[in-house]
Design a binder for these strands. Structure first.
Length: 952
RNA sequence: GGGCGGUUAGCUCAGUUGGUAGAGCAAUGCCCUUACAAGGCAUGGGUCACAAGUUCGAGUCUUGUACCGCCCACCA
């Protein structure tokens, strides 16, 4: 074996073997256990979030697989409608081609080409992470099977009255030219203005103050062209007399009514609100209440008036108003229109004032552009009836969130859910299975043929399929069952659905988790007809942030590619990677500087295991993760530690009898029995925390056991036994070799879910010596603690031994005694137990504390001046002659004594409190008493010692 | 405006039912001791954000305050 651990030398090769040998497939026996991967964008590439998410899922699926469950980790990718279409459109734009130049069919060919070309990137990356997904079942949301499921789901929901088409105000993305759902809109705090505009009162009316106009305040003056009313609060004394009267809408010269509505806040602005029902969600509601006309003044590209439509609430055209719309603003961009309209107001002396104003600006999460509320026909899912059972499923515990607090987030959103707009004016996606005849009548069915036969439409009736596609999340919402073959009742669907665990970030609880729950409950039934949930547990994790706690983003230039941590990257390449393809090329300078500062030497290759162990160690409950490269390095070192411990174990065990034949002619030392006991405790703990999804605690427990117990103590304790030259020590040696190798083998199985590669590599090397068979550690059994193997006596004995060694080492360290100097150490004043333990453990003591000799002093024996340490009552004496500085020893003892003294004072105070003695459990009080007594004796001894040395 | 989370060592974080505050990294000193310098041994470092309450006893339970972060919401 190499002297240092070289991750790249082992990782790729093992993954290929695993995949080739189909180790990832369900075993076909055991309890079914299924995790569905959140399907990444097929044309995307891996980011830290994926890395984290995969590390968690793989750890848990490997754990279950090793527990003997019949595990399926379903893998696949998402077509990611908007994101993918945007990429391809951008590529075309570079050649000055728009998708419209190509036409729908040609454009889709291009997208499929791009999918074929780049679609393998993310799956290759998932392989590099070591994820044990079943590739033989890989699915894509637009493959035939899943498309069938999408159609089926749409048709069933439509037939059940849960999907409808309607004209409503939607969030329109003027850049992408599509409607988007509420969730895809992000509200940002931005600085803006509040324009105060005068609307002249008609018919000579005046306000209470005698003015012949009302002042309305708006953040969007350009929408005034579509104003249908001015609203005031019904109880507002200032305007009460004007309710029912009219204002003459400037520029448009249209009479619009003054209406009363509770929605108006009297305190804000002037208390008068212009109402534009077709361009504002609140105004839309007000308009409905007052039966106001809906006037769309923007076209799909958010330019003004290019497609002015004017409708009454019933949809009839209101010609009178339509003719009144001014032509001068036609075709202007909405912000240009704003300028010109404000200018027009100013020119007409109708601009009262302009205030600075902070406001929430809605932006499309993909395009980043300001969203325009716009009146169009779209398809909707009626969510209220679906939400009810979805709430119940979480309330009654059929579905559990981990951590639980996310259930509140889920409930609050679900209880106030709005209908879901599922149509998108895109080309890439599942085309909506609806057809229109010449009159616009809509027919929904699985295909045109079915529609024709179902509605008895002859070939003379021309049908056109709806041009729109479905929201990507509609197909993702079916993911847990569409991948298993639904609507067919496949064996896999029966076996693995409902699935067991979903691992995902909190940011897509609404987008995805909530919708999966709603859709599944409605569409998927058990054989007895009862509704199925999609999964039993939702493990929710936080976002991976950079070491400063900043969100990683391309524009900030702080993104890390998990593969760069695995394989390493030099500084120049990293700088280049971070500064190319920026939205704003000006950021490059700053990003380069920042990157050179943070990674002066680039990033080392740490390997997949170290990265994954790091992710798991950071996976504590429900908080975001600050990613720290120092942790990765620490865990890479941990891998190296395991690697080197293995080298030692192999040196001792190779070509030796380690009991691999099952023979029993061996003897276990106290150290052997101790590490076996500790191992049981570690196994118990790891299983417990894995069952509760506390991967951070699992990494801690493993790290602690491997490094601090197995390596630091046990390997050292094995040396005096194995290096013993004396006769008749063979049985002990065999016992120790046996323990060394078997504990190591167990450590590997215990760690495998967290660090799959190194554990497999080593396991293959050592399994014959451990008497173990099996093709792969992946299918070996996860260690289960056997409490009968916990030897309390051995635990206590080694604890004592450690205390003695620590005492000597402390003197050595504090007194600056060379580690090369073997010491002659004396012991006195101990119990019979101490004496017996000293006798039994001389071999260990001498080696671990570097002692020349160990001598027991009886009462009355002459005693050289010494540095002292205490273990219980027993004193450890290291003779001072020539090696120990008097003042330093006094200082050391004083420090020790002061520490104890403080403890005594604190404890005595407690015991002096009558209430404590009376009310605290007897056991607690007794412990405190014991503690004071022991410490008092110790302090006494230390004082005597200080005096003795001072007297020299 | 409502809701949720966080505040513990210089940094990143654990702390299960209240009973002596922990780890890793960083720091300091000594060591190339035959598994490992990606290492070994030892050491220092904390009013557990603040305040009040419950309790014999609070990092832990209750209430309030401050600051940080997130989610949701119709103030033009």
């Amino acid at each position: 074996m190499d002297k240092t651990y070289q991750p790249h030398a082992i990782e790729n090769q093992w993954y290929q073997t695993w995949e080739k040998k189909a180790y990832f497939k369900p075993a076909g026996e055991g309890n079914p256990y299924c995790i569905m991967i959140p399907p990444p964008n097929v044309t995307g590439s891996l980011h830290m979030g994926h890395g984290f998410n995969n590390a968690v899922m793989d750890a848990l699926i490997r754990y279950r697989r090793m527990r003997g469950d019949d595990t399926l980790w379903q893998v696949g990718t998402d077509h990611a409608g908007i994101a993918t279409q945007m990429v391809v459109e951008r590529q075309l734009a570079a050649q000055n081609i728009s998708r419209h130049d190509l036409g729908r069919e040609k454009f889709l060919e291009k997208v499929w080409e791009w999918k074929e070309q780049s679609g393998g990137t993310i799956t290759r990356q998932i392989r590099r992470l070591g994820s044990s997904v079943d590739w033989t079942r890989e699915r894509f949301t637009m493959d035939d099977g899943l498309s069938t499921a999408v159609q089926e789901a749409f048709v069933r929901l439509y037939e059940d009255g849960l999907i409808y088409r309607g004209k409503r105000l939607v969030n329109w993305d003027p850049k992408l030219h599509t409607a988007i759902s509420d969730l895809e809109v992000e509200n940002h705090d931005e600085k803006g203005n509040l324009w105060n505009l005068r609307y002249p009162l008609a018919d000579g009316a005046t306000t209470a103050e005698g003015k012949n106009y009302l002042v309305v305040a708006t953040t969007r003056p350009e929408t005034m062209l579509g104003d249908s009313a001015v609203a005031v609060h019904p109880d507002d004394e200032r305007y009460k007399s004007l309710i029912g009267k009219f204002v003459l809408l400037p520029l448009v010269n249209r009479l619009i009514p003054i209406v009363a509505d509770d929605y108006v806040d009297r305190e804000f602005g002037t208390g008068c609100v212009k109402i534009t029902p077709a361009h504002d969600f609140n105004d839309y509601e007000v308009g409905k209440r007052h039966n106001l006309p809906l006037i769309n003044v923007l076209d799909k590209n958010a330019a003004v008036l290019a497609q002015a439509q004017v409708f009454n609430l019933d949809g009839s055209v209101n010609n009178e108003l339509n003719n009144a719309l001014p032509a001068q603003f036609a075709g202007l961009d909405r912000y240009e229109a704003r300028k010109q309209i404000v200018a027009a107001f100013e020119a007409a002396e109708l601009l009262e004032k302009i205030d600075d104003h902070g406001l929430k600006v809605p932006r499309g999460d993909r395009s980043g552009i300001v969203i325009e509320p716009w009146l169009t026909d779209q398809w909707y899912v009626s969510t209220k009836p679906l939400a009810e059972p979805a709430i119940a499923a979480v309330e009654d515990g059929r579905i559990q969130f981990v951590p639980k607090q996310y259930e509140n987030m889920y409930f609050s959103w679900m209880r106030d859910i709005q209908d879901w707009c599922i149509s998108r004016q895109l080309w890439w996606g599942h085309r909506i299975p609806a057809w229109y005849d010449a009159s616009g009548k809509v027919y929904v069915g699985r295909n045109e043929e079915e529609v024709r036969s179902k509605y008895n439409l002859g070939t003379e009736v021309k049908l056109n399929q709806d041009e729109d596609v479905l929201d990507t999340w509609f197909s993702s919402g079916l993911w847990t069952f569409s991948t298993l073959g639904w609507p067919e009742q496949t064996e896999f669907l029966k076996k693995f659905h409902p699935t067991d665990l979903l691992v995902t970030g909190f940011d897509i609880i609404f987008f995805w988790v909530a919708r999966m729950i709603m859709l599944t409950l409605h569409l998927v039934k058990h054989e007895d007809g009862s509704a199925q949930i999609p999964f039993k547990t939702v493990y929710v994790h936080g976002l991976v942030r950079d070491s400063q706690g900043q969100k990683m983003s391309k524009s900030k230039g702080n993104v890390l590619d998990p593969l760069d941590i695995i394989d390493g990257i030099d500084l120049e390449t990293l700088v280049q990677k971070r500064t190319t393809g920026l939205m704003n090329p000006k950021d490059a300078v700053k990003i380069e500087k920042q990157t050179r500062k943070e990674f002066p030497d680039g990033i080392q290759a740490y390997g997949t295991d170290a990265l994954r162990f790091t992710f798991c160690s950071l996976a504590s409950t429900g908080r975001d993760i600050k990613f720290d490269m120092g942790r990765v390095e620490g865990y890479r070192n941990f891998c190296n530690k395991i690697w080197n411990a293995t080298r030692y174990v192999l040196m001792q065990c190779e070509d030796q009898d380690c009991g691999q034949d099952g023979s029993s002619n061996y003897e276990l030392s106290v150290a052997d029995r101790w590490i076996i006991s500790k191992l049981q405790l570690a196994e118990k703990q790891v299983a417990e925390v894995l069952d509760t999804y506390r991967l951070d605690l699992a990494t801690q427990a493993i790290y602690e056991f491997v490094w601090n117990e197995y390596c630091d103590w046990y390997l050292e304790l094995s040396k005096p036994i194995l290096f013993d030259k004396s006769e008749g020590s063979d049985a002990r040696k065999k016992g120790t070799r046996r323990t060394l190798i078997r504990v190591l083998e167990t450590i590997l199985r215990l760690s495998h879910p967290l660090m799959p590669f190194i554990t497999e590599e080593i396991w293959q090397k050592i399994k014959p010596l451990a008497g173990v068979t099996g093709e792969t550690i992946m299918h070996a059994r996860f260690p289960i603690a056997d409490e009968s193997r916990i030897d309390q006596q051995a635990l206590k004995d080694v604890e004592w031994l450690q205390a003695v060694i620590l005492g000597v080492r402390n003197i050595r360290g504090e007194m600056n005694i060379s580690p090369a100097k073997d010491l002659n150490v004396l012991f006195k004043n101990g119990s019979a137990d101490d004496q017996q333990r000293l006798q039994a453990n001389q071999q260990f003591l001498k080696k671990l504390a570097s002692l020349e000799s160990v001598t027991w002093l009886n009462a009355g024996d002459a005693e050289p001046m010494s540095a002292t340490a205490l273990v219980g009552q027993m004193e450890i004496l290291v003779p001072m002659a020539g090696i120990i500085n008097k003042d330093a020893e006094i200082a050391r003892l004083t420090k020790e004594s002061n520490k104890l003294q403080q403890d005594i004072e604190r404890t005595e105070m407690k015991l002096g409190n009558a209430a404590f003695v009376e009310k605290a459990p007897a056991e607690v009080v007794e412990n405190e008493r014991k503690r004071v007594n022991e410490n008092k004796i110790a302090v006494e001894k230390l004082r005597e010692q200080i005096q003795k040395i001072s007297a020299l």
